[in-house]
């Protein structure tokens, strides 16, 4: 699906938000791919992801230990890993290429930056396939305000309600909770591990000053 595609924000806000999505291809290399997925997660973990996991197993932000996440991954897993630093993404991608495990890898993030990451990591001559987001259409007056969507769209399956964001933002404004505490509480709602807790805390800090 398209759960890592619709994150909103300016280039400045998104420049430290990259997601790896790794999964086997049904009917091609999915059967028996779990050991390769586990190895790829071990590689990614060396580069300090903000969050990592899969829906079936759980993720770091929901409090699951890394070892347990990796050990429980099955062939069916769609592995996600979130990074907040471009240089570490380059190094992680280079390491995945060197491991040459043959499992598909996608990176969500600023399109031009991802191309640059690929060049610097020495991965292929050019990307294989691209998925471009065109925003949303229809009864647009029904969606949450722009500021709130900066956070809610980081949860791939939209498990984070606008109301909990507004509730915690209010608490942060009153100084009853720190931006990071608010971000951690929000991250626990995201079941797949796509939520970027560091970026969420930065956004809450900025919004709480408004």
């Amino acid at each position: 699906m398209t759960h890592t595609l619709y994150r909103e924000g300016s280039a400045e806000s998104l420049k430290n938000d990259y997601l790896f999505v790794i999964t086997g291809a049904k009917g091609f290399n999915k059967r028996g791919c779990a050991p390769k997925l586990r190895e790829m997660m071990r590689i990614l973990s060396r580069f300090e992801p903000v969050n990592m996991g899969s829906m079936e197993v759980g993720n770091l932000a929901r409090g699951m230990p890394l070892k347990e996440i990796i050990n429980n991954v099955t062939d069916a897993a769609i592995v996600q890993a979130v990074f907040d630093d471009k240089e570490r993404v380059i190094e992680a991608l280079r390491a995945l290429k060197e491991a040459d495990l043959g499992i598909s890898v996608t990176i969500s993030g600023l399109t031009e930056e991802v191309k640059d990451i690929m060049r610097k990591a020495g991965v292929g001559e050019y990307p294989h396939t691209s998925n471009l987001a065109l925003g949303f259409m229809g009864r647009t007056e029904k969606v949450a305000p722009d500021d709130v969507r900066l956070i809610t769209t980081m949860c791939g399956h939209h498990m984070i309600s606008r109301r909990i964001v507004e509730h915690l933002l209010g608490k942060a404004r009153e100084g009853r909770i720190t931006p990071m505490e608010a971000a951690i509480r929000l991250s626990r709602q995201c079941t797949c591990g796509a939520f970027n807790t560091i970026r969420a805390a930065q956004i809450i800090e900025e919004l709480s000053k408004k």
Partner: peptide, 18 residues
């Protein structure tokens, strides 16, 4: 008139067989 967003998703082409 359909302007894509600045962020997207890229398949980097590490899957095999290609």
């Amino acid at each position: 008139g359909f302007q894509p967003r600045i962020n997207g998703k890229t398949n980097v082409g590490l899957g095999r067989p290609l």
